[in-house]
Computed example of a mutant assay.
Amino acid sequence: MRHSPRLKPLFHPGRLLITTPSALAALRENGVPIISVMLRHIAGDWGTVSDDDKRQNDLSITAGLRLLSIHPLPDQTRIVVVTERSRVNTIVERLDTRNR
């Protein structure tokens, strides 16, 4: 029997807020449970953010600053996860690249 590795949380994410209905719709359309994105985020898997942002996140865990991760879905929609400095809330939204 194979055991998958257990992800160790690096910080408390606070309350989960999905601020854009399109984020929840994109997760559902791609068959990706929100919990899988959250587990990656709190375990320090920052997804596709820049190397500078990854280093900043790693420092921000102990410094108590904002944390950011971006996770592409199978259809290439990108989901952004932001944990506030206060660790009261973690916000999940869909990254809209149409205007970029």
Rank of each mutant, 00 (worst) to 15 (best):
P9D: 11
P21Q: 04
G14R: 11
S22V: 05
H3W: 10
R6S: 05
V32H: 09
I18H: 00
S22D: 12
L10M: 12
A26E: 10
P33S: 13
G64N: 03
K8Q: 14
I70V: 12
T20N: 01
M38V: 15
S22C: 03
Q56G: 00
L39A: 13
T97L: 13
T90S: 11
G64Y: 05
R100G: 09
G44R: 02
P5A: 11
G64C: 10
G47F: 01
G14W: 10
R66T: 15
S86M: 10
P21K: 02
Q76I: 07
R85W: 08
P13D: 05
I91Y: 10
D51F: 01
E29D: 14
P72S: 10
T83W: 00
R28C: 10
G31D: 09
R100L: 11
N30K: 06
G31V: 09
L17P: 00
L59S: 05
T77E: 08
E93Y: 04
E29T: 08
M1C: 10
K54T: 14
V92Q: 02
H3D: 04
P5Q: 12
L65T: 06
H12T: 15
D45L: 06
L24E: 14
R15T: 15
V82D: 01
W46M: 03
R40E: 13
V88F: 00
P9I: 14
V88E: 02
T97A: 09
L24N: 11
H3G: 01
V92W: 00
M1T: 07
I91R: 07
N99H: 08
N30S: 13
L65N: 14
